[in-house]
Design a binder for these strands. Structure first.
Length: 271
DNA sequence: AACAGCACCTGTAGGC
DNA sequence: TGCCTACAGGTGCTGT
């Protein structure tokens, strides 16, 4: 569920609770949520302090004072929430970190997310492309140019660009007026420039609005996002386009539901 | 090698 | 009420 803006919002709201704080106790309720599953995570965390909390792509990276690091991926349904010790424990709570002033709980009903131990050597970079908010157009164009897949599918590939998901891919392609089925390798230099601007604008605005809450997403303080109110195509199938009043279309691309305006994002012939 | 398709898992919403 | 189906913000494996 969470894409870059939601993950960034979780990091921003979680950081004040954990940066510099000591993990007094850790409880892992199912070992298969952790990679490697054989790791004694609770023992490794107890007594350590969190020196930094950062985001890379959709990964939430915890740095510890013993130089070990791990990251949490929220998958589709994961959440990281700061709660008081006596808050009732929700079903599907997989990890609790006990700090002096609160508990941090990782909850994930669908279990597509997980906890990944990196130790001192592994990097959270593995398999990830550049950050969408930082990538420059020539590099984006080069990366997209290497695949013949549909541009929408390519934008969801985290090794091409790390952090964009289904909502923001659709929103960025609308903003750049590019048909989602366009082959990535056929994106022109001008389209790549527009797309890069569109991705950055959409992500920045979404972060300003603290992400999109469609159903379960909440930040670390339990607050919803508001950007879903500003979606122009995602989830708006059969509703009028805000620009031209044509009806927004919904198709399935790469197994993911895809929304676009057939008129504003008219497909170039033979692309 | 690259790509499409599906599997992973649970919850929810809507139709009957 | 209850049963069934479709769908959900992600990723990784499989077979072609």
């Amino acid at each position: 569920m969470p894409e870059l803006p939601e993950v960034q919002t979780v990091v921003d709201t979680l950081a004040p609770h954990v940066r510099g704080a000591i993990i007094r106790r850790a409880e892992l309720f199912r070992s298969d949520i952790c990679t490697p599953a054989t790791l004694d995570l609770a023992q490794r965390l107890a007594g350590r302090s969190v020196t930094d909390l950062t985001r890379r792509g959709k990964r939430i990276v915890f740095s510890l004072n013993d130089c070990n690091r791990f990251y949490i991926h929220l998958g589709m349904s994961g959440s990281l929430t700061a709660l008081s010790d006596d808050a009732p424990r929700l079903p599907h709570t997989h990890l609790i970190l006990q700090f002096d002033r609160c508990q941090i709980r990782f909850t994930d009903p669908r279990r597509f997310g997980g906890i990944f131990w990196m130790g001192k050597d592994l990097h959270c970079e593995a398999g990830l492309g550049p950050e969408p908010l930082e990538v420059r157009t020539p590099e984006l164009a080069r990366r997209l140019g290497r695949t013949t897949r549909a541009i929408k599918t390519a934008l969801l590939d985290q090794s091409i660009l790390a952090g964009v998901g289904n909502i923001y891919a659709d929103e960025a392609l609308f903003a750049a007026r590019i048909h989602p089925r366009t082959k990535a390798s056929r994106i022109s230099a001008e389209q790549a420039r527009k797309l890069n601007i569109a991705i950055k604008q959409v992500l920045r605005r979404a972060i300003q609005h603290r992400g999109s809450t469609l159903r379960s997403y909440r930040d670390a303080n339990g607050e919803s996002g508001a950007f879903q109110k500003l979606h122009r195509v995602y989830g708006r199938a059969e509703q009028p386009c805000c620009v031209c009043k044509s009806l927004i279309a919904r198709i399935v691309l790469g197994g993911r539901s895809t929304h676009f305006c057939p008129k504003c994002q008219a497909k170039a012939l033979r692309s």
